[in-house]
Simulated scan of single mutants.
Amino acid sequence: MTANVALAGAGPAVVLLHGFPHTWRVWSEIIGPLAAHHRVIAPDLRGFGASSRAPDGYDAGTLATDIAGILDALGESTASVVAIDAGTPVAVLLALRHPARIRRLVVMEALLGTLPGAEDFLAAGPPWWFGFHAVPGLAETVLIGQEARYIDWFLTTGTRGRGVRPDLRDAFLAAYTGTDALRCAFSYYRALPASARQLEQAAVARLTVPALAIGAHPVGDALERQLRPLADDLTAHVIPDCGHIIPLDRPRELLGLLMPFLAAGDRRATS
């Protein structure tokens, strides 16, 4: 697999993992401030954006292996990892399987498979698109020619109606247009049962790295409640009046949480 990776800055490495329907550009408001003190590594996940459209391997375990490989290729033995949405199970598995490589973990607006704690959030069932995306071949067939309307719904809903910059909207739309691009995106959802099993198996170990869980609308504190039983050192915040796409909807508030948390890990690493 060939990965497209955006790089900026110098210093302790920080990996930024996006979700759906994003690319690395979901971190556009975050990369500059982080790059003042860190080497920022922002890949397009397997099959997304400009990374190669792999036929399989969309389970969280394989994606975590991809990220470890990117760190190896860039000569980074350790890194902090920041993830949202589809990137969150990947980041958590990476931290559970390779705790010596992860300095700090920041995760937001996602659920971790079937781990306990999200029962209230799931009381009425998972979000409707999970089932739609999970049926092999269905969503990409139905949505061909309608990609703009579909992606716009997620971008608008994910910012509570505020929307995203036109250049970012165009970049996301381009990344999710066409049958193969959609197939790759929906393959993540089709691999969710495998990812859930991987998380259950890995969660027998403790999450020993310092972790920060950030919620907004709609996930709120559900991710925190899933992490709390297995995390040794967990801090949690819910950002008010913030949509699902936190890095674009409330970047200033996110940076206010992110930068001191990452800096604390950098000080420990160099002391």
Rank of each mutant, 00 (worst) to 15 (best):
I102D: 09
I102E: 15
R103W: 02
R103V: 04
R104P: 05
R104I: 09
R104E: 01
R104L: 05
L105V: 08
M108C: 04
M108F: 00
E109T: 04
E109V: 00
E109Q: 15
E109I: 06
A110C: 14
L111I: 10
L111T: 04
L111D: 11
L112G: 09
L112C: 02
L112N: 13
L112K: 08
G113L: 01
G113I: 07
G113P: 04
G113Y: 07
T114I: 02
T114K: 03
T114M: 03
L115P: 08
L115W: 11
L115E: 10
P116N: 12
P116Y: 11
G117H: 12
G117E: 08
G117L: 03
G117N: 07
G117K: 14
A118G: 15
A118N: 14
A118R: 09
A118V: 00
A118I: 08
E119T: 08
E119Q: 14
D120W: 07
D120R: 11
D120C: 05
F121M: 08
F121I: 09
L122A: 06
L122C: 02
L122K: 02
A123D: 08
A124C: 07
A124E: 15
G125L: 13
G125W: 12
G125N: 09
G125T: 05
P126H: 07
P126D: 03
P126K: 04
P127L: 10
P127Y: 09
W128N: 09
W128I: 06
W129V: 03
F130Q: 07
F130K: 03
F130S: 03
F130L: 04
G131P: 01
G131H: 07
G131K: 12
G131D: 15
F132A: 04
F132Y: 14
F132M: 00
F132R: 01
H133T: 00
H133C: 10
H133K: 02
H133V: 05
H133A: 10
A134Q: 10
A134P: 02
A134V: 00
V135N: 10
V135P: 06
P136Y: 06
P136V: 02
P136I: 00
P136T: 08
P136Q: 03
L138S: 11
L138F: 15
L138K: 11
L138I: 12
L138P: 05
L138G: 09
L138C: 05
L138T: 04
A139Y: 01
A139M: 06
A139D: 03
E140T: 01
E140A: 02
T141N: 08
T141R: 10
T141D: 15
T141K: 06
T141F: 04
T141I: 00
V142I: 09
V142E: 12
V142C: 11
L143Q: 03
L143Y: 03
L143G: 09
I144D: 15
I144V: 02
G145R: 13
Q146M: 01
Q146A: 11
E147C: 01
